[in-house]
Amino acid sequence: MFHIGSEGEIMIRSSFIQYQMKSYLRSLTFIPPVTLFGAWVIIFYTYSGVPIMSSYVITSVSMYLVMTWVAMNVFSLEDETEKNLLIVQLNGKRAYLIGKWAVCFLVTAVLGAFALVYPLVFSIFKEPIQPVQLMAAIYGHIICGFFGVLVGSFFSTLKIESKRFAWLSAMFVIVISLAAEGIVEKASFFKWLLLPFPPIYQVILHFTDGTPYVVGNGFWLDTLWVMVYVVAGFFLTKKLFLKRE
């Protein structure tokens, strides 16, 4: 029976996020993924006059990869004793897990904002962006970032025999989810087998370059499935974390 008021929970989260951010920044493990992502966005936009949505789809997919990397780093910041101590200090595993995710979402927000704003600031697109395109691009970057956090935190929690296997498993899921549509085209019976993989195709499918940009017919249905997947994925990861830790 741990009793914590709502004010207490807010206090825990903000100071724990501060603790985690300081620890993450000082660990310097953020440098490879963040540098790679930043450099990739800058190199990708070397030439101006590029189409809007097909450029954003590339940076969205990059978010998926980079956030998996970031999440795996954030979830392996502490050794066992520090983790145990934090769980007691925070009054439970739930607050610990939520704090970890909050840090990942902050990084998602910063990287996503950079990928979205950079081409707009330097007027790299061949035409002015429509508000609906911007909304779709924000949605795509956030969801792809969330998918990355989900895959990274799930495999960190799963504690597969060694860290190397956790990375391999995460990479396998990323590759399969990116190639899902091609696999299903070749052999349709894979459609149901691929359901547990992040539905990234249902997000990038709607990043089309037609003028004017219109939200396609299946967009809302796909978005509904993506939302259900994200909520169920985080719920399942939370259950797994509370059980395994």
Binding site: M1, I4, K22, S23, S27, V88
Partner: peptide
Amino acid sequence: WNTNKIGYVPEHFPEGLR
């Protein structure tokens, strides 16, 4: 438990705190 907060001192303090 009938507690709000527990103080815990581990046998070995964590290494590598930043």
